[in-house]
């Protein structure tokens, strides 16, 4: 079975920077941006995109539903 590669797309303006996705990411992919969005929150982004497996854990725990997850077999 090939390795899975994934990617997330974060709706930056809706993200509230609660960091719940970051803590629940098993691959340590997500970090909080040093920039802030319009509301002043440090939004989530893929710090290490190559580690993402597209497991969708971040997306299902996100209280605001701002993360969309994609996955392919590499």
């Amino acid at each position: 079975m090939g390795k899975m590669r994934g990617a997330i797309v974060v709706d930056n303006e809706r993200c509230k920077g609660c960091e719940v996705c970051m803590v629940n990411c098993p691959a340590d992919t997500i970090a909080m941006a040093s920039e802030v969005n319009g509301k002043g929150y440090h939004y989530a982004y893929m710090e290490k995109p190559e580690t993402c497996t597209g497991c969708a854990n971040c997306s299902i725990v996100c209280p605001d539903g701002v993360i969309t997850v994609y996955r392919v077999k590499a």
């Binding site: 920077g17 929150y41 209280p63 993360i67 969309t68 994609y70």
Partner: peptide
């Protein structure tokens, strides 16, 4: 190449409106 509609795994359900949730972060 990964971010394509056919590779979608999970996204916000369409039954939630576009209104931003009024709850605190987390």
């Amino acid at each position: 190449e990964i971010i394509k509609p056919e590779n979608l795994v999970h996204q916000r359900t369409s039954l939630m409106t576009d209104a931003t949730l009024s709850y605190c972060p987390g």
